[in-house]
């Protein structure tokens, strides 16, 4: 089974949150389309969508993950607001892991136009966006985490579980791991419980896998952006 996820990042200039005047904002929206599962029709996918977006914001909550201060244009007035829109097209297991990989790849690819702030004589400020469409900045994504979920099947734990494996399991532990190996979020999901002794093993395994996964993703994205293939159609 496949898991298909499409992620787009849009940047807008907006007012910052009043409690954090010199930080950009990051917002996650997850849409579970009815294409993935007829149960998602109407408002059916809302719970799952909320679960995924809250898991993402928890994983990104540490201030070291994505430097939001660099997204500030005018402190207290204008900052970049990044909308990360996740579209779920097909669910074939390990949805959260796939979404986090796609989000990281999309953020690596995100280009923020260069802006200059001019102060007029009256003291008011004007924001000017560069005319050159290639005058853009990339985001610093080296500390953005990927999520690794270990699924408990019987007495064993499985990484990258298929839909069938997920149906057999009751407990999952999702761990967000950065490239340097620090864990930015851990959460137990599902209706089962875990033994404390197995948690240390899970965390260490998740860390190893996470570091590897981050490296592979970065390599893949670099390769993808350097090679120009003759493409026919979007999905090939």
């Amino acid at each position: 089974a496949n898991t298909d996820v499409l992620v787009g990042v849009k940047a807008e200039l907006d007012a910052p949150e009043s409690s954090q005047p010199n930080r950009g904002r990051l917002e996650f929206f997850v849409d579970c389309t009815a294409n993935a599962d007829p149960e998602f029709e109407g408002r059916g996918g809302e719970d799952l969508a909320l679960g995924i977006s809250s898991a993402l914001s928890q994983a990104f909550s540490s201030s070291n993950c994505l430097d939001l201060c660099s997204l500030c244009v005018l402190p207290g007035q204008q900052v970049w607001l990044l909308y990360v829109d996740v579209l779920i097209l097909e669910c074939g297991g390990s949805l959260l892991d796939a979404v986090s990989l796609a989000v990281k790849a999309a953020l690596m690819n995100t280009k923020i136009p260069a802006v200059t702030v001019n102060t007029t004589e009256e003291g008011s400020s004007e924001i000017e966006v560069s005319d050159d469409p290639y005058d853009v900045n990339n985001l610093e994504v080296s500390k953005v985490p990927c999520i690794v979920t270990l699924t408990r099947v019987g007495h064993q734990f499985v990484v990258d579980a298929t839909k069938e494996e997920q149906a057999c399991s009751i407990g999952h532990l999702s761990v967000a791991v950065t490239e340097s190996g620090s864990l930015t979020a851990v959460r137990k999901t599902g209706s089962g419980s875990l033994h404390p002794e197995s948690i240390l093993d899970i965390l260490q395994t998740a860390q190893e896998i996470g570091i590897n996964l981050n490296q592979q993703l970065v390599e893949k994205v670099k390769l993808e952006s350097s090679v120009k293939k003759d493409r026919r159609g979007f999905l090939t």
Binding site: Q58, S61, S62, N64, L173, T178, G181, S182, L183, T184, A185, V186, R187, K188, S193, L194, H195, P196, I199, L200, L203, Q204, A206, Q207
Partner: peptide
Amino acid sequence: QVAALQCDGELQPKTVS
């Protein structure tokens, strides 16, 4: 048995355990 576990911030597996 661990029924719930939530961590956020930036931690190492050893610290968590």
